[in-house]
């Protein structure tokens, strides 16, 4: 695996290789393509339809998030009316004066109908994509980085570092994220934004990833190739980063993709509890879903469509996580 690094050459502790018999078998075939774990994974991924579907959906969602204007010209927050009051409005919406727009079904130019406030559901979903996706990604990255680094250190080095990091994790983990969110959102009352809410969700969520990684590291570090790596003289750090971490990361990737879904729904739950992003400034699926619950029985479209958008995103990320996990695990690949 470290063959591409010519400087570090493992000294031979055993007898010289027999130049005669086994030499031909042992010889490195230089004409073969270069190979490492991630390159192999990529080759594997390319051949999977699930990977392509999820990748296309995710790329599409990212595109919607960056260029919402391409998909709708209706503003998500302006011109929201509860009912048609004037002739001008009547012509605009194509319905008679007096019609309730609040929770109304689809009208020409408004394919998914209207929210309780009379805003366009489709436009709000399109414009909310960015918020929900950003919160999900920021939280996941934050949690993954903190969890992987801290979990790997704790598991691999063990001893007091393990105890210290895991106890910090215990403290953070036990602090309910609702408390954290209320405090953080209150402290930044007048400038609440995506970063603040991501921090509120993610800063207290890393211990679970850290624990998963730690337990996986505990398992992996008992394996022969780790002993071998240390035996041939690789430093502990190098062993951890090149051998232990890549082989321990699969469960984290699954947890992270599911966690991304969790982060998006956590944002929604915070909205439900009243400490989410201000709904008039930030469009987000979470805000829309939690606002829609009062109309659950009479206007299910206000709840269903944002939920579908959310589920689709979640589905795509989980499918991606599945394929990436399979690809990263040479054994799974071999027997597929």
């Amino acid at each position: 695996m470290s063959s591409k690094n010519p400087v570090r050459r493992a000294p031979r502790f055993v007898a010289e290789v027999d130049e005669g018999g086994l030499g031909a078998v042992d010889a490195v075939r230089v004409s073969d393509r270069k190979s490492n774990l991630w390159l192999d994974a990529w080759r594997d991924l390319r051949s999977r339809w699930m990977f392509w579907i999820s990748a296309v959906i995710i790329l599409f969602i990212v595109f919607v998030a960056i260029f919402p204007g391409v998909f709708t010209s209706v503003p998500p927050n302006d011109n929201c009316i509860l009912s048609v009051q004037t002739q001008a409005q009547a012509e605009e919406f194509g319905v008679p004066v007096g019609t309730r727009i609040s929770n109304h079904g689809p009208l020409p130019g408004h394919p998914l109908g209207f929210t309780k406030q009379g805003c366009d559901v489709f436009s709000r979903i399109v414009h909310g994509t960015g918020t929900s996706l950003s919160v999900g990604i920021i939280v996941t990255v934050l949690v993954a980085i903190m969890g992987i680094v801290l979990g790997a250190f704790a598991g691999y080095f063990g001893g007091w570092l393990d105890s210290f990091l895991m106890r910090i994790g215990d403290i953070f983990f036990a602090i309910p994220y609702i408390l954290a969110a209320v405090v953080i959102m209150s402290m930044f009352l007048h400038d609440r934004n995506i970063w603040i809410i991501s921090l509120a969700i993610g800063f207290f969520a890393w211990p679970s990833t850290a624990r998963i990684l730690r337990s996986e590291v505990l398992r992996v570090k008992q394996l022969d190739f780790v002993t071998a790596s240390e035996a041939i003289g690789l430093s502990k750090f190098r062993t951890m980063f090149t051998h232990v971490m890549p082989n321990s990361i699969a469960p984290v990737i699954i947890i992270s993709t599911v966690g991304l879904a969790g982060a998006i729904t956590a944002e929604a739950t915070l909205s439900f509890l009243g400490v989410g992003l201000p709904n008039n400034i930030f469009m987000s699926w979470g805000n829309d879903i939690s606002a829609a619950q009062t109309s659950l029985r009479t206007a299910p479209q206000t709840l269903i469509y944002p939920s579908i958008a959310l589920s689709l995103t979640v589905l795509a990320f989980i499918m991606l996580g599945e394929t990436v996990r399979d690809a990263l695990d040479p054994k799974a690949r071999a027997t597929r």
């Binding site: 959102m185 209150s186 201000p278 008039n280």
Partner: peptide, 8 residues
């Protein structure tokens, strides 16, 4: 014009 929610 916007609403300004205070958490509590």
């Amino acid at each position: 014009a916007v609403g300004l929610p205070y958490p509590d």
